[in-house]
């Protein structure tokens, strides 16, 4: 089973007369273990597609299966359940400012009812160590650098070892050195877990990690082997 299967998906913003179509007849299959980069001009619909795949928006037509779950007409409860199985990485780190790095990672692990609190604490520590923040667990996000915050966010996203990771411009807010670091960490962890990753980026410097690059323009997909 492919982690992502999309068939004839269209998407409109707005209603009735004001409706504006932003996605046109999207068909896409991503295989388990693939690292796929989605790129393309601003406003072409990349984020919209990513939020549909992640169950953050309602699918309006066509068929979209994420991790084997059909999202067309899925209930809110089903979407909540699915979201817990996906690792999200955003452009902004979106860490809760009132929790330490360690606690932010624990928040993600706590969604897993099977873990004891002891396991949660130790796994959060391991995760932080894996992103190079082993000694920063007790820091609040305000006291971390941009790159450190993004690494903490990655630790949170990957703590549950999700089979699918969705990342939207994770390096956009970082300088090139920390951007590279973040990508390397992501790459290593994804490979270790045999996860699949769909990564939206404008950042030409990180395209080398991709198994496949997809290009989006005006709401339509085009496959490419190399970037311009």
């Amino acid at each position: 089973m492919n982690p992502i299967t999309i068939c004839q998906v269209n998407y409109y913003f707005g209603k009735k007369a004001l409706a504006k179509q932003v996605l046109f007849d999207i068909n896409l299959d991503i295989e388990a273990g693939e690292i796929v980069i989605l790129t393309g001009p601003s406003g072409s619909g990349k984020t919209t597609l990513l939020t549909l795949i992640g169950g953050l928006r309602a699918v309006q037509s066509g068929s979209l299966c994420t991790l084997g779950k059909e999202l067309f007409q899925a209930s809110e409860a089903e979407l909540v359940k699915l979201r817990g199985q996906i690792g999200y990485i955003f452009q902004a780190h979106n860490l809760l400012p009132f929790m330490t790095a360690q606690q932010n990672v624990q928040m993600s692990l706590e969604l897993n009812q099977d873990l004891s609190s002891h396991q949660i604490v130790s796994q959060a520590q391991e995760m932080l160590a894996a992103v190079g923040l082993g000694d920063k667990g007790n820091y609040y996000p305000d006291h971390l650098s941009g790159g450190q915050k993004q690494r903490a966010a990655i630790a949170r996203a990957l703590a549950n070892q999700p089979k699918l990771i969705l990342a939207d411009e994770p390096t956009a807010a970082l300088d090139s050195k920390s951007g590279r670091e973040v990508v390397n960490i992501m790459y290593r962890l994804v490979k270790e877990n045999h996860s699949t990753i769909l990564l939206v980026t404008h950042d030409g410097r990180i395209l080398d990690i991709a198994d496949r690059i997809i290009y989006m323009e005006d709401g339509r997909l085009a496959q490419r082997k190399t970037f311009l």
């Binding site: 992640g54 953050l56 809110e76 409860a77 909540v80 359940k81 979201r83 817990g84 199985q85 999200y88 955003f90 902004a92 979106n94 860490l95 809760l96 400012p97 928040m107 993600s108 969604l111 949170r156 996203a157």
Partner: peptide, 16 residues
């Protein structure tokens, strides 16, 4: 003040 962070909690699987 923390709408974005709360929305993130929802995105990672917390219910409304």
């Amino acid at each position: 003040e923390h709408l974005k962070e709360f929305a993130t909690l929802k995105a990672i699987g917390y219910s409304h």
